[in-house]
Nucleic acid binder design. Structure first.
Lengths: 149, 149
DNA sequence: TAACTTATCTACTAATTCTATAGAGTTAAT
DNA sequence: ATTAACTCTATAGAATTAGTAGATAAGTTA
């Protein structure tokens, strides 16, 4: 995950704390989350254009979250800042691209498996929301075997 | 996933077809898998150094797989070529790095969740092996809810 | 209205990573 | 010896990442 995406996540979590309340300044978020301010400005703009936050200019301005924290998923944020969830572009839903090393996509032996991996990854990342981070209790919807990594 | 990692996977699958049999030339793999030969050379060397394949030089030389296809997981190959499985370096097992935007790692609200995501991702990627690709039947060990992506 | 505050937008840059390519060297078979 | 094939290191162009800079627009307050 890119730093940009991680910063976006931290900003959303910070804004999520104030959900339903007042605005937060870029500066406040930059300082409390240790994010370079000018970089954060771009990120907040991206989040605004994607509809997650709204802003107000001038004195007493700032940003506020306008979507329910429980509805903002890690999958969406990842797509917005880091692109495809799929491991290979030829099985991506939102960022499809043909592989130049694959003469016949229909008979590709990788594709079926990678679609399966994509679906499971999506399910995993969709189970994590801004609310998850705010509560600290993962409500991930996929049970995994307990194992040593 | 980088092209290098994808090429490595395809090479392993191709070698997996001959598992227990004879050698394959770099050229054979390059042609059948549509991988730039000189790039593939590097990849096969990496796979050799990691212990997945062995090689023989000179005439009648080539590469052969020396680990069971069922024991070579997507998780391992990903780590070898693309690095960490974790989304953020501060929760990575094999590629740990501290975050410079995190003053106190112990109280980081992202960490617990990202460890959970890492573990589930690892389980997912560990369920896919070279054998999986050879058989075309995913034996992924994590059931996911069927859902529209 | 003027001054001040804060978001908006575009452009730019340095560093790193990715995707190869090049070429010399090494080992083995015939 | 000659040929075939792997081995290793270096290099280079393109793309991406992680910011920085600066001008502009919009809103508040005195």
């Amino acid at each position: 995950m890119s730093k940009k995406c991680k910063y976006a996540l931290k900003a959303l979590i910070r804004l999520g704390k104030e959900y339903g309340g007042g605005n937060l300044l870029t500066d406040d978020i930059a300082i409390s989350e240790h994010i370079p301010k000018k970089f954060l400005e771009q990120i907040l703009l991206d989040l605004k254009h994607a509809g997650y936050v709204r802003s107000k200019q001038g004195s007493k301005g700032g940003y506020r979250l306008v979507q329910e924290p429980s509805q903002i998923t890690l999958a969406e944020i990842h797509r917005l800042f880091d692109g495809a969830i799929a491991l290979v572009p030829c099985v991506s839903q939102k960022f499809y691209e043909a592989c130049d090393d694959c003469p016949d996509e229909k008979s590709c032996r990788l594709k079926k498996i990678f679609i399966d991996v994509r679906e499971k990854t999506y399910a995993l990342l969709s189970g994590v929301t801004i609310k998850t981070f705010l509560e600290g209790s993962p409500t991930l919807n996929i049970p995994a075997k307990k194992q040593k990594i």
